[in-house]
């Protein structure tokens, strides 16, 4: 049921993704704010299939030269490509001081025991400005292999970007900035170089009182 209903292929599934700030109020109390979040879900066959977006509509929002989205998509497999539109929650009251940790947690699972490489490219006007590459090994849990990148520290570029974004007085100004801010995540099998998942992230600011929201799409090319 995962196929076509969430960020997954037969080889790897994104189980959870969150970017957050966490403030240590005192030795026993932590306040956590999620900027964006994809929670654990268990789709069934009665759930709707993901809508699709033509990958060519977003080529210019991501690197276009060697190793760019176009080249990656042409190499495939095309069923491993997804687009996530996040409505980010910037409505935080956590004070910004030295006791704040900015982090990203993600979790994947697979029927296969692999070593995966996760590349995350932050792009401005479609050009890569910073890249983080992480390698993760499998842990066998409950009959499947789990890959957990736990509390990976957010880079300075992103922390500064969030600070500046929050200072803008109007949401339409934030959305105007976010129109040219994207992130491309590519997960590969380290040993075979096979592409397992490619997720393109685009953003707006949430207007909800209920935290971050998102829509997920399959990337296709008719």
């Amino acid at each position: 049921a995962w196929q076509g209903r969430c960020i997954a292929t037969t080889k790897l599934r994104l189980v959870e993704f969150s970017a957050f700030m966490e403030h240590q109020q005192d030795p026993d109390t932590y306040n956590k704010h999620l900027f964006v979040h994809i929670g654990q879900s268990n789709p069934t066959y009665s759930d709707a299939l993901l809508e699709s977006v033509d990958v060519r509509q977003i080529y210019d929002k991501f690197p276009e030269k060697k190793g760019g989205l176009k080249e990656l998509y042409e190499k495939g497999p095309s069923n491993a490509f997804f687009l996530v539109k996040f409505w980010a929650d910037l409505n935080t009251t956590i004070p910004d001081d030295v006791r704040v940790f900015y982090g990203v947690t993600s979790q994947y699972e697979s029927p296969d025991n692999m070593t995966i490489t996760c590349s995350s490219k932050v792009c401005s006007f479609g050009k890569q400005v910073v890249e983080k590459v992480e390698t993760e090994y499998a842990r066998f849990e409950n009959g499947r292999f789990v890959y957990r990148i736990h509390r990976s520290p957010m880079c300075e570029y992103l922390i500064n970007f969030i600070h500046k974004l929050k200072q803008l007085p109007e949401k339409y100004m934030m959305n105007s900035v976010l129109e040219n801010f994207t992130i491309l995540q590519v997960v590969t099998n380290r040993d075979t170089q096979e592409l397992l998942l490619c997720i393109a992230y685009v953003f707006e600011v949430s207007t909800s009182e209920h935290g971050a929201q998102h829509h997920t799409y399959r990337l296709i090319k008719d």
Binding site: E51, S52, D54, Q57, W87, E179, S208, G211, Q213, H215
Partner: peptide, 24 residues
């Protein structure tokens, strides 16, 4: 936007792309 760049609003994207989901 850079010169020649098409705004996202003018691209062929699903209607849901512009509709923030309501919390379940």
């Amino acid at each position: 936007l850079r010169q020649g760049q098409v705004p996202m609003r003018k691209r062929q994207l699903p209607a849901s792309f512009w509709e923030e989901p309501r919390p379940v």
